[in-house]
Amino acid sequence: MTIIANAPYDFTSNDRQEDFRGAMLVYVGWARHMMFASPYCWPLPPDMPFGALVEGPMAQAFAQHPDWEQADWSTATWTRNGEPFTPDLSKSLADNGLSHKDSLMFTTPGLDGIGGMGF
């Protein structure tokens, strides 16, 4: 549908990638770890290696959880905007095909939160 207005209605999006001075927004959430109330949001350079996202911003956000140090990245599975996704940790975000405002969710098999309660 399109908006019903009483005058021409033409406004640009408030969050286009060019507004972020070269960075792209990426969201990452951790499945079965509800301690983190929502996925988090970062502005990242598109040429940043995917592995650097894991070791940098993600570690900073998620390492308060005791499961973090046990996470095995060779078995972790990912989704992007709800669809299956297999990142190559050595390649950049852009070369992994990530776009501005993509939302990633990762699952760490065998790690099911505090006391196995999904938390």
């Binding site: 969201y27 959430g29 301690m35 983190f36 109330a37 929502s38 996925p39 988090y40 949001c41 970062w42 911003p57 900073q60 956000a61 308060q64 939302s103």
Partner: peptide, 12 residues
């Protein structure tokens, strides 16, 4: 002495 706090802004 290590209270949990989110350091990163959330997705909205």
């Amino acid at each position: 002495g290590t209270p949990f706090e989110a350091a990163t802004p959330p997705q909205q």
